[in-house]
Design a protein around this nucleic acid. Sequence first.
DNA 1: TGGCTGTATTTTGAATTCATAATACCTCTC
DNA 2: GAGAGGTATTATGAATTCAAAATACAGCCA
Lengths: 227, 227
Amino acid sequence: MSKIQQRSLYLDVADRVRALIEQGDLAPGERISEKQLCERFGVSRTPLREALKVLASEGLIELLPNRGARVVRLTLKMVKDTYDLMGALEGLSGELACQNISDEGIRAIRVLHDEMLRHYHERNLPDYFRVNQRIHEGILAASANEVLQETYSNLNQRVKRVRYSKKMTDDFWRKAVQDHEHMILALEARDGRRLGQILRDHLCNKLEVASLAGVVEDESLLDVAHS
Amino acid sequence: MSKIQQRSLYLDVADRVRALIEQGDLAPGERISEKQLCERFGVSRTPLREALKVLASEGLIELLPNRGARVVRLTLKMVKDTYDLMGALEGLSGELACQNISDEGIRAIRVLHDEMLRHYHERNLPDYFRVNQRIHEGILAASANEVLQETYSNLNQRVKRVRYSKKMTDDFWRKAVQDHEHMILALEARDGRRLGQILRDHLCNKLEVASLAGVVEDESLLDVAHS
DNA sequence: TGGCTGTATTTTGAATTCATAATACCTCTC
DNA sequence: GAGAGGTATTATGAATTCAAAATACAGCCA
């Protein structure tokens, strides 16, 4: 028995373009040729163009009337602004999680937390990042607010390609872990206000922004952008 | 000399459909016929369908594969979740506004605040609402965070058609004004943390949700929704 | 009469075609 | 040889066409 419900073509195309952007196969500022992508995906221009419209409304690309599309170049300010926003959303997710999460849910987060600590003590950065991310995702899921999750996911998508720059000073790392210690305690106490506060201020965001100074070239994107 | 740069057709169509939804000309749950809208707008299906894709990604309509589109029916939970989110965003806007707003900006908000107070004392609800909204917009603008503004605007668009239900008990109203008194003081003191906290908890949100019990029919939308 | 099956119609999904704006290139002039 | 102007080419915007799925409807049978 095969799958009955077929996803629309434009959704698949949108996913594939998103992946290309995320992986850097389509560089920031790069002009997107419709024909080229059509041939690459083996679809006609109609679904491709529909996909581009969606991606534009998601903020991943920008459409220039009569001149096609190009991948959005992230400015440092855009990334900073987006992180501020994501911080606020994480804060909310913490508050809501404390209201809605089950006791088992808390225990599951605690398990992840302890695992993360082990990776920290072993100075295993990749695994630390991975588990760290799962903790934040877990809290987000526990918020039981789908609009929040969807919004967060969209914002995250926008900055994914510059995230996880892997630079982490000992000092920052120590403070991040300390934040997490306070977080798990607040969660276990179901102190939403406190967890929210911690998450909003969680220096991951600020840290990442700081470390981006080298990754994103501030306003240098304007050299291509004067449309 | 006429306008040179012409907006894309699909953008105009999207705006017009948004307006139809907001005004209630397209009812929640109502099936959207492509042909009908094409004739109404005098465009072909291509730009209309592109517009529908965008509106779907904005959360205003939903696309059912091979069965067209329909206006999203808001559940009470969706509205509640959205308001929670908007509260968090307003909180952030307050924090940022305190960092970025100019002294003139603060004075401008103070003027609006005093005007709002007058409307309150005269029990002029429509003008109160109007000025109230301008205050919140002013703070949002002062945040100088475009991603935030854009995100807020999208969420607001989703719930616009059920907002401003005009029901306001004296008690709620008094508390709302009281919140605003604290807000303007926090702003003038540039106390971002406090202003953020007030805005997050500002009972407008909770109030509106409460008053919605009659406007949005809780889960009754499911009668159409089992796709 | 009520329900089911098969056909006709309508509607959506996607490709193609046509029109127009932008770009590239070539020539002509200075 | 450099730059301006004009034509050819290419790419995009939008309409149309074709294909496939869903819906409506009619006839059939119990």
